[in-house]
Structures are given as C-alpha cells and as structure tokens.
C-alpha cells in the first residue's frame, strides 16, 4: 500500500526501522550499510510518482543532490 510506504519514508528516517523511528523522533539518522533502505514514494520531475521498491531486483544508485 502506498499509504504505508509514504508513512515509512516520512516517519522512519533513513536507516531506522519504523519502530525505532517512533521511539526516537529526534534522531537525524544516516543510513546503515547492511540494512534495508526504507521504502518511500516521491513525486518525480515529470509529474508522476516513483517508489523505491518498484526497482527491487535491480541494483540501484540513489543520488541525493541539489542544483543550488
């Protein structure tokens, strides 16, 4: 369900499980090597939406950036 995916991305913070995130809302975490990347849904630049787990089965390089 997209609702739960959104909630996970929103609440989890990268690198935390949903449970941990709820226990520690102030943790601005870094992701952890060896742990699952929390799933998320975000709008795309072209008007649709994309979900990380839709790419399951492929190697993914996620690059966070800003054009500033």
């Amino acid at each position: 369900m997209l609702v739960s995916m959104v909630a996970l991305a929103m609440g989890g913070g990268i690198g935390l499980t949903a449970g941990q995130a709820r226990a520690d809302e102030t943790a601005y975490s870094r992701i952890e090597v060896g742990s699952p990347h929390p799933d998320f849904v975000l709008p795309t630049l072209d008007g649709g939406y994309a979900r990380l787990s839709d790419y399951r089965g492929k190697k993914v390089l996620l690059i966070h950036f800003a054009s500033w």
């Binding site: 992701i31 742990s35 699952p36 990347h37 799933d39 399951r56 190697k59 996620l62 966070h64």
Partner: peptide
C-alpha cells in the same frame, strides 16, 4: 547510496 537487488544498502 548503493542499494542491492534485495533493497539492502
């Protein structure tokens, strides 16, 4: 961030 086929970082 490099994520493998199973979603693991």
């Amino acid at each position: 961030i490099a994520i493998d086929e199973a979603g693991i970082v």
